[in-house]
Each structure stands twice: as structure tokens, then as C-alpha cells.
């Protein structure tokens, strides 16, 4: 145990990379055949960094998050590739080893706190559950820590909330309680899957601020999965845009908003309503043609976004799209970005 910790410290010193995913392919079995929902994703998350994964529903961003935690149903899911977390491949670990990492080193915040929390357990007990699983603390210590966490996530009366059930709390308070559970063991990596989607704007602003504050304190890495570009602009350090199971563009946050290149990224940014201060409601929003392809009908050859931009001739796309490094750290998939114009 001790040696393990030292080793970890040593690794961190020379390389602050926390999580490294290479060539991850997550496929689901549908009618006897496997279809890849995540198709060759590589990324790395460093300590003290917020890595945002953006995309629309069905692009594979949640499948990616669940793959990291290995939470998919084993019977009909196949995960290939490598996921190194602190130089251990999560995909090859035994269940007991994995369980010691889940919740302790990697915390997860789910989208809908009402379904993710146990309706029959008091909030206090749910926080202590994770503490007693991973740490050997006395009852008083656990209770103190739970109170401390509830206070840390900005719950006004921790002693009261400690004794309450999830249904007695408002949406914002529930999400806070879930963040408290995810952070109970001070994880070095937090996966937040749409943490504010179910919340009102003012509560969303509060929760995002809270996550930022806690992240600074704990110096942990956060993988932020969202479809909300506003949240990305406010929170992220690095951004990866996903489409049909692939990362189509990745760059740091300033670069991606100042200089978006991939047609999908540009289309997404153009379809956000009411952002420009001058939006008088007269101009039309950009609409991406067609639909997000379903897993079964997806054409896996060539540029996957090409059917949605039919006015760009096929010769501008690559037959086997590869990543182009436009600037250091800014990667774009397929060469079609060079000739893309809105129609």
C-alpha cells in the first residue's frame, strides 16, 4: 500500500498525466453483431485540468464515460483499446482491484441525481457508504467527514440534510449531495456526466462554480461531459468535440472558440440561439442537415460528417480520415475543414 503510494507520487512528478485513453473502441451487441459506439478515441487528461467532451445525444460521449469506469453491461459490450489511469490499465484489472479505484480514485457525477441516488437511504448514509468501503474510519470520523463534505458543497444546513432522504431535497441540493458522494474520498479524477443539465440556470451557475472551486482545492482532473457549449466555455481547459463515436476536433478552450475548424464544430457553434449580444431574433439559426446517424446505419468508411454537408464534394474529404495538427495541440479530423463553407 505504502509502496504503491510512493510509486504514484513518482509517476506524477515526471508526468502529470492522470488518464490516458488510446484507441478505445466500445461496441454494443445488437442482434448478434457488434456496433462501435465509441470508435477509436484517444485522449489524455492531466491533473488539475478540466477536459470537456462535447457532442449531441448519440455521439458516444456517455458510452465513453461509462467505459472508463467499466460500468457497461459485460454481456453485450466489448471494450477494446487501453485506458491507463495512473499507469494501470483499467480494462485489464480484476473486479476487486477496479472496485478499489471506483469511488476512491475516480468519482462519478451522474446527470440525474434522482435516479442515481438511492431513494431508500438517507443522504448521510449514502456518503458514508463510500467512506466505509474505501477507508477505515470510525463512525464519528465518518459522520464528521460527511458533514464536512455537505458543508463543502454548499448545503446550508448539513446536519438536517444528513438525516434527509433524496426526495426531500430540491434538484440543486440533490446534485450537491451527489457531488459530495463523488468527492467523498478525494478522488484524483472526477467524471461529470452532464452535471447541470437538469438544473435551472442560476443553480447551474452555482454548481459550476462549486465544481471549479473544489477542483482547484483538490487539484483533481475533471472529465466534463456536456452538450452545452456555454458550460464548456465557462469550465473547460481542453475540449474534445465528438461526432458519431469519434473525436472530430480537439484543442484548448480558447482555441476552439476563437478558431473552430471542423465543419461539425462550426455548425454547432452557429446553431446556439441568443448568444450574440446583438441577437435581435431576425437572423436564422444554422441548421445541420439530416440527422445524427444511428449506430446501425452509420457508414464507417470515410468522413462520417460528409452526409450532413452534401454541398462539399467528396474529393475534399479523405478516404481514411486522419488527424491534422493545425497548431500545437489543435487536432482536426479529415481534411474537409480546409474547404468548408456554410451554405
Amino acid at each position: 500500500m505504502m509502496g504503491d503510494k510512493n510509486l504514484r507520487g513518482w509517476v506524477v512528478m515526471i508526468n502529470k498525466e492522470l488518464l490516458q485513453i488510446s484507441n478505445l473502441v466500445t461496441s454494443f451487441r445488437i442482434n448478434g453483431e457488434y456496433y462501435a459506439a465509441v470508435d477509436g478515441v484517444s485522449l489524455s487528461v492531466r491533473e488539475n485540468e478540466v477536459f470537456a467532451i462535447v457532442g449531441e445525444s448519440g455521439c458516444g460521449k456517455s458510452a465513453l464515460a461509462l467505459s472508463i469506469m467499466n460500468l457497461h453491461n459485460k454481456i453485450n459490450t466489448k471494450i477494446e483499446g487501453n485506458i491507463y489511469f495512473k499507469n494501470k490499465d483499467l480494462l485489464t484489472l480484476r473486479l476487486s482491484e477496479l472496485n478499489s479505484i471506483r469511488g476512491r480514485d475516480i468519482g462519478m457525477i451522474f446527470q440525474d441525481p434522482l435516479t442515481a441516488l438511492n431513494p431508500l437511504m438517507k443522504i448521510g448514509a449514502q456518503i458514508e457508504e463510500s467512506l466505509s468501503f474505501h477507508m477505515s474510519l470510525s463512525r464519528e470520523e465518518k459522520q464528521d467527514r460527511a458533514m464536512e463534505l455537505l458543508e463543502g458543497v454548499g448545503i446550508p444546513s448539513p446536519a438536517l440534510t444528513y438525516e434527509q432522504f433524496p426526495h426531500e431535497l430540491s434538484g440543486g441540493m440533490r446534485q450537491r449531495a451527489m457531488i459530495a458522494i463523488a468527492l467523498a474520498c478525494k478522488p484524483s479524477l472526477v467524471i461529470a456526466d452532464e452535471p447541470t443539465t437538469a438544473l435551472d440556470v442560476t443553480i447551474q451557475a452555482q454548481i459550476l462554480e462549486l465544481l471549479k472551486k473544489l477542483q482547484k482545492e483538490m487539484k483533481s482532473g475533471i472529465i466534463l461531459i456536456t452538450h452545452d457549449l456555454g458550460v464548456v466555455a465557462e469550465m473547460a481547459d481542453k475540449v474534445a468535440v465528438m461526432y458519431a463515436g469519434q473525436i472530430v476536433e480537439t484543442a484548448d478552450v480558447y482555441e476552439i472558440f476563437a478558431n473552430p475548424l471542423h465543419p461539425y464544430t462550426r455548425s454547432l457553434l452557429a446553431s446556439v440561439p441568443g448568444v450574440s449580444p446583438a441577437d435581435s431574433g431576425k437572423e436564422r439559426l444554422h441548421v445541420i442537415r439530416g440527422m445524427v446517424p444511428s449506430l446501425l446505419k452509420l457508414n464507417r468508411k470515410g468522413c462520417r460528417f460528409s452526409p450532413r454537408i452534401p454541398w462539399i464534394p467528396l474529393s475534399f474529404h479523405e478516404e481514411e480520415p486522419r488527424y491534422h495538427e493545425v497548431k500545437p495541440g489543435h487536432f482536426v479530423l479529415c481534411s474537409c475543414y480546409k474547404n468548408f463553407k456554410f451554405k
Binding site: V201, T202, Q204, A205, G230, A233, E234, Y254, F257, V272
Partner: peptide
């Protein structure tokens, strides 16, 4: 409410 609208420019963070 207006202040809580996310700003789409990370420069203004």
C-alpha cells in the same frame, strides 16, 4: 437570472 447565462467566450471567464 441574466447574470447566470453562460458566456460563450472563454476569454470573458
Amino acid at each position: 437570472l441574466i447574470a447566470a447565462i453562460p458566456d460563450m467566450d472563454p476569454v470573458n471567464r
